[in-house]
Design a protein around this nucleic acid. Structure first.
Lengths: 411, 411
DNA sequence: ACCCTTTTTTTCGAGCTTCGAAAAAATGAA
DNA sequence: TTCATTTTTTCGAAGCTCGAAAAAAAGGGT
């Protein structure tokens, strides 16, 4: 049972809507916010006056807009950059990064390291991250904005409370409670997010008109990750981060997957699977670990130049992705798909068989052409999505809540 | 952008919450409603007084409850049966039924027909339904409650606006705009719902503690249907009724499916697929239509008594269901599954291979034992779900809205 | 310069709504 | 019959949003 709407919730919700309208971009005027939210001008006026007083929003100085209309000019409102800072940490194979982002979304400090994540102990990994975070915090210096939230975007499966990493291909260790560690260390609320989910969040924020309602992001790499936006909401499983697209079954009892099971999509479309087939190895052969990008590039070039096993390997990868997407579309209805990750450098090789496979499924029946997008460099998207997740959380909770009345200091 | 919460929305939402608390069952007192909704006693008192005056709720006479406590006794509130009637129509292969249900959910009139739906024209089908509906309306007679809503629960795919049937196995005709037809004929708002979705709605209403958050219903019949409840909400696709579980791909380019494609789950687990394999036919053989239950029962008995092709056919059906459920679980996380329909009479034959297949998938990794339930007779569930859908729609829209002030007649 | 027009923003009182406290109601226990 | 207990209603206070009117801030025209 949802809880009833109390009177003070009303204000909180409407404040949240105003903040969301401003974060939505375009530095809207009060009138535009009123139109976007459906609230009256007078309400928006009251709320925005409060938010400006509290330092959440700020009046943006009039830019040199060529269009000079008659009448009182609109006053553009923006997010106050000093309202808060958040820290977005990303953790991928042999790559750590941390960035401090202000309330308006601008990156203030950004650093990264390239340690060998696979060979580190869990403690070493935690300490390396802590050192990196410490470093960016120091470089942030005496920024007057308080650090209010932190997200860790990780390639792997998180628990549903978004506090721990359950499993990840970047480290042999499992069940690492990152949130606990960082919260005690840095005294900041932390959530652990799946990297593909953050990419989906970032793409939705970038192109709400295209991806605002539905979006599937598919990460092509050693493993196959997925992020899913349905009806405007990030879809996560009820017990974990969900969306384990790479481990949907493509061929029952088929090729050996890294996860120990057989026939997963990843066992056909992951880098190691493509390599294994191209080299003519048995499909039950143990997957190779950590394939460098050069090998994949060479294989892609070989596939482009000849008819051999290489070309077939990419074709099979596309089929696995296509049939799985087709099954997904049968459940969710077709949605735009954004492919991300280094694996997209060979997208020309797999796209035809993806489309061909989808067309042979129920989900692909009605659409001649699907909306595919390519984004090779996923790192900025992951950071952006992590920051956005942290910032909108602040919007909806911390800043949407009316602050307690300030006691006037009359001394 | 969601629309802002206006002041009058507040009342509407809280009225909806009170009605929902009462429909939730248990004939709660005002105090219990306050506890369930989180609203104050005084608010509940005001709202429930209004709703009683309007004839939406009613005071339930004290039942002989043995527990006599000290203090003023609680007054139980219930839904006023005469607040409205709804009509729940169900449409399955060779079977039409219509029932009039009062606002409290009690069936008042119920009739059914057994025409041959496959050989009827679309007009004949519409007219047969109209005659049936007319008949129950006549039998309802001068019931003082107004008929405010109608649902058609149909085996098949509906459009996302829930007005038309896009495709169904029970009729060769497609794109039938049922809602339009019935709305002009009977002057009642109509929605067209998928039968499996209605089963899910009914089971959730019956066992909220078990199925309130997540539930998958799988209909075993000629085709394989699915209804999905995720986070308490009925899941439907964004363009259609969605959840075309039966047409997820089990084996790429595999057995011939009724839908014209190949390798769908249904092409292994549907009745025709089981029969085809048991008879040793080629799996690309054209599916047989409309297999009677006796044939399936005989085949199930043959499978129970021998090791032949029959047993293998059921085993393969279970594998298709299990792998597909495993893929589903990889996306959604494991959820309780309720199998419904006549096909469940052979559930003892397919269950082991379902469990075995799930255990070989990513979704089945963490759960040794899944929560399976069996419900052979789906017809009452479909009716119940359809009625519930109509009634809760009325709750949330018609009755939650504050009525215009009555002008007092002082003549 | 000056006034008019146009558009945006703020102000102000009215009307709802919810809430807490107190009162009223209804019953069992003594 | 009176007291204790629990539920329900009543009533005033406080908060929120809204519409209308006023104020503010520009350009346009003479």
């Amino acid at each position: 049972m949802t809880v009833g709407v109390r009177h003070d919730d009303l204000r909180r919700r409407n404040r949240a809507m105003v903040i969301a309208a401003v974060r939505g971009g375009g530095q809207p005027s009060r009138t535009e916010i009123a139109a976007a939210t459906g609230l009256s001008n007078s309400t928006i006026s009251t709320i925005s006056a409060d938010l400006i007083t509290e330092g959440v929003l700020t009046v943006v100085p009039a830019i040199e807009n060529g269009i000079l209309k008659r009448g009182r000019p609109q006053v553009a409102l923006g997010l106050h950059p000093r309202a808060a800072n958040v820290i977005a940490v990303t953790l991928s194979l042999n790559s750590l990064s941390a960035a401090i982002i202000d309330y308006s979304g601008k990156v203030i400090v950004h650093e990264f390291r390239r340690p060998s994540t696979l060979t580190m102990s869990a403690d070493e990994l935690l300490n390396a991250l802590a050192e990196l975070v410490q470093s960016v915090i120091l470089r942030m210096g005496q920024d007057l904005a308080p650090l209010l939230r932190m997200t860790l975007a990780i390639q792997g499966i998180t628990d549903s409370s978004k506090r721990a990493l359950l499993w990840s291909p970047i480290t042999p260790h499992s069940n690492i409670d990152f949130a606990d560690f960082f919260e005690t260390r840095f005294r900041v609320p932390v959530t652990v997010e799946n990297d593909c989910n953050m990419i989906a969040v970032a793409l939705r924020a970038r192109s709400p008109e295209r991806y605002g309602k539905n979006l599937i992001t598919v990460m092509l790499s050693d493993g196959i990750g997925m992020g899913l936006i349905q009806r405007g909401e990030l879809f996560t499983g009820s017990r974990s981060s969900g969306g384990e697209f790479g481990h949907m079954i493509h061929i029952p009892d088929g090729a050996q997957c890294r996860c120990g099971r057989r026939g997963c999509v990843e066992a056909y479309a992951g880098n190691y699977a493509i390599l294994r087939h191209a080299r003519g190895e048995c499909e039950t052969a143990q997957p190779a670990a950590d394939i460098d990008h050069l090998t994949m590039t060479e294989m892609a070039n070989a596939a482009r130049n000849g008819e051999g096993l290489e070309r077939d390997a990419f074709k099979r990868a596309g089929e696995a992705l296509g049939f799985a997407l087709g099954s997904l579309f049968a459940l969710f209805d077709p949605a735009p798909v954004a492919f991300v990750g280094l694996g997209t450098s060979a997208f020309d090789l797999i796209e035809p068989s993806i489309r061909n496979a989808i067309a042979r499924t129920a989900g692909g029946q009605h659409n001649a052409e699907f909306d595919f997008a390519i984004q090779a460099d996923e790192a900025p998207l992951i950071r952006e999505g992590g920051a956005y997740q942290a910032l909108t959380y602040l919007d909806q909770t911390v800043f949407a809540a009316s602050p307690p009345l300030q006691v006037l200091d009359l001394a």
